[in-house]
């Protein structure tokens, strides 16, 4: 008790910088966002607009653009989170261990993560271009060379979002792979040795040693990937402008458009609050599920 009491000034001192920054840059803006969402507020007006109750929320939910942006973002997350996580785990298992070729592979998969998303988005836009006289798209060029019909990619309402999904997985998978690698290396070798002595094959070892061993890592990776996926913005902003026919417009893009194009800060903040609640709910739900799974295993 005494020691605790003597330590509290140090605790306050050590916590203060983070607490101050979180209050200034997260809590205060979040409170301001909630407050603005309850007013009819234009972007440029220096004074607070008239109170609007829940009108902004009703307008957001009734807006077909918001609904399609929600659908696109959900579709993106539903594809990216499981595929990217599974692929990252597979890659981590593959490159885990000694050998120069594993080190080269690790580096090759990790490099895209170190590049700016802006740069990779522009590069992939060029890769997805048409080939031939009208453009110089490398992928369509390869397709042509092996006799596959050229694809419209980013200009097709059916393919554009899938193209963004593919590019995003390519860009992000290396980071998750590294986290899984760290997780894999925390599993003691004795557990595998014991499992081998008990006659467990590699698939049973994976199910009963590896998966439970990396359960906390898996929970973190899934949560972080989900949050990143729901924050989708740069790729559609730079690669498709949210088109064609609005099929790639994301929720964050919708908010930016509401605030800076329509100059309707109240509407943008209402969308922001709904987005925050949705991300929060998904994250808490995932954590609860992960905890039950960890407890069960």
């Amino acid at each position: 008790m005494n020691a605790g009491r003597r330590e509290w000034p140090a605790a306050v001192l050590l916590l203060a910088p983070a607490a101050l920054l979180i209050t200034l840059f997260v809590l205060v803006p979040a409170a301001a966002m909630v407050n603005t969402s309850l007013h009819l507020q234009s972007l440029t007006a220096p004074q607070t607009g008239p109170a609007a109750g829940l009108d902004n929320y009703r307008a957001v939910i009734a807006d077909p653009d918001f609904r399609s942006a929600t659908g696109n973002t959900a579709f993106f997350a539903v594809l990216v989170v499981p595929v990217q996580t599974a692929l990252a785990l597979l890659l981590a298992l593959w490159v885990d261990g000694p050998g120069w070729w594993r080190r080269v592979l690790r580096l090759a998969v990790f490099i895209p993560t170190t590049l700016s998303l802006t740069v990779t988005a522009v590069l992939w836009k060029l890769l997805y271009e048409p080939a031939g006289a009208a453009g110089s798209g490398l992928i369509n060029g390869l397709f042509q060379a092996v006799g596959i019909a050229p694809q419209p990619f980013l200009t097709s309402p059916h393919q554009a979002l899938l193209c963004i999904v593919f590019m995003s997985i390519w860009q992000g998978v290396g980071f998750q792979m590294m986290i899984f690698l760290a997780g894999l290396q925390t599993i003691p070798d004795q557990q595998y040795e014991a499992a081998t002595l008990d006659g467990a094959g590699s698939s049973r070892q994976f199910l009963h040693v590896t998966l439970p061993g990396i359960a906390p890592t898996l929970a973190v990776v899934v949560t972080v990937t989900t949050i990143f996926a729901l924050k989708l913005f740069v790729q559609p902003y730079l690669m498709t402008h949210g088109g064609p026919l609005g099929t790639t417009q994301s929720l964050v893009q919708y908010m930016v458009r509401a605030a800076f194009t329509h100059r309707d800060l109240g509407l943008a903040c209402a969308a922001g609050v709904l987005f925050l609640l949705a991300v929060g709910a998904v994250t808490v739900g995932q954590r609860l599920l992960a905890r039950r799974w960890e407890a069960a295993s």
């Binding site: 009819l40 607009g49 008239p50 609007a52 307008a59 329509h262 309707d264």
Partner: peptide
Amino acid sequence: HDLDRRRARREAG
């Protein structure tokens, strides 16, 4: 949609 929202904002103000 934007025009109607602005009209509502003006009337509320």
